[in-house]
Design a protein around this nucleic acid. Structure first.
Lengths: 247, 247
DNA sequence: AAGTGGTCTAGACCACATT
DNA sequence: ATGTGGTCTAGACCACTTT
């Protein structure tokens, strides 16, 4: 008696812990500040380290914390708004610094992509790798699949695979008149190569944006972009006043 | 000697486990099939249950598995495509069965929402709760915030709070001419109430879609919809041929 | 060398659904 | 009553960054 007896439906410890930490982050910590290490936090709250970590994991998933091995846990800034539903997402703004071409190869795309491209499974396509940066941080890694038929002006032999070829392909694509675009967003986890590009550990949560570009009723390219889910909020605008949600 | 010595960069066990399980799911299991329980799987792979669970967690995050307490782990069907960027997402299709009005109250919205609505913090707005169902499963829970000024035709006293009021508000909104819409998508975790509506445990990963509806340059409503991240792929279409990505 | 977060173990008990 | 996944513990060791 005398103890609070409200746990008729006992809340998991890590869940309660998360609430407490959220409040603390709102009131007592500034962005960028370093939290006490996990062992000390666990001791302070009287729980096992694994339990404390379960709470931290959720907070990182929600973009409130950033954890780096060997360094520590810091308070994350609010997520940045990233436009993905605009022409700006396309290759038409190759001049601005949002997307950085990395390299280009000729490969057979995954079966799922081949289906979207309406080509034979196993057929070769240009595969352009691009990376996107924001606030000095890597934001997204993209693979752009372009069937040779979509860039007839490109003479593959002119430029060797690599960044130069990537730029050439994007340049050619700018000559194609876009008909439409459809996109989808789903949750995924970063593969090893993506994780490295995004400066995260493998398995980190990512938002996978698949874009299908069409012209004259045909699919001319498919892009699969993986955005860091912890730091990004994807914005889709009508074109009028995107500032508010873009934060 | 004689053992495979390729772990110069030793892959974490749970990561390797995930790969093995993914392959097994692709080749040896059918959708809906029940996996062996966690204790047996852990024993079979020679790892602790916690390690096995780390792999299962990731697979569930990727939508490959579905775990239900007291029941077991089953192979999940491919994610369903859910249209969110269409007029179909709005109240203009109140006739079809996608969205189900639940109830309606008059509350002060969170500060963030008040900012988007361009109203005073603490001011009361109509708050309509809707739920969305697909394939016989709960898909999303939405809170729609509507300032009284946006529905001048509504006499609040006519209908008591509840489902009837919710329908009345949606009906009134259909009279407003929409100017534009902007949306954002980010990763979140389900609060207790949302989790219940989505038939998941608290903390389950969700895709939070925030929509700001405007008319004549002003914000007339803001919707915050939380979609089950494990079962849904959100689709944004141009209006032409959404079938492919919508899967 | 020291300190951090990441991985892993071998248990225990609890909440929930089914039988 | 049984069996399932969910929570929690108290350790240990590893990978990485910084000093």
């Amino acid at each position: 008696m005398g103890t609070t007896q409200l746990d008729t439906v006992p809340e998991p410890k890590y869940w309660h812990l998360k609430t407490v930490l959220t409040d603390a982050l709102d009131s007592e910590f500034a962005v960028g500040e370093i939290l006490p290490n996990e062992r000390e936090l666990a001791a302070r709250f009287g729980v096992a380290r694994a339990t404390l970590r379960q709470a931290l994991e959720q907070l990182e998933l929600e973009g409130r914390l950033q954890r780096r091995r060997g360094v520590g846990t810091t308070v994350a800034p609010p997520r940045m708004g990233v436009a993905v539903g605009e022409r700006a997402h396309s290759w038409e703004d190759a001049d601005d610094a949002a997307w950085q071409p990395v390299d280009s190869t000729e490969t057979a795309p995954p079966a799922e992509i081949a289906r979207l491209l309406e080509i034979q499974p196993g057929a070769l396509v240009h595969t352009v790798r691009r990376s996107r940066v924001g606030h000095g941080q890597p934001i997204a890694a993209e693979l752009l699949y372009v069937p040779p038929a979509s860039v007839p002006g490109l003479s593959a032999l002119d430029t060797p695979p690599g960044a130069a070829r990537a730029r050439a392909i994007l340049r050619e694509l700018r000559h194609v008149e876009l008909g439409g675009r459809e996109q989808s967003v789903e949750l995924g986890s970063a593969r090893a190569d993506q994780a490295k590009a995004l400066d995260r550990l493998p398995g980190a949560p990512v938002l996978v944006v698949t874009t299908r570009y069409t012209a004259a009723g045909h699919t001319i390219a498919v892009a699969v972009a993986t955005y860091r889910a912890d730091t990004c909020r994807l914005t889709f605008g009508d074109g009028a006043g995107v500032e508010l949600l873009a934060g």
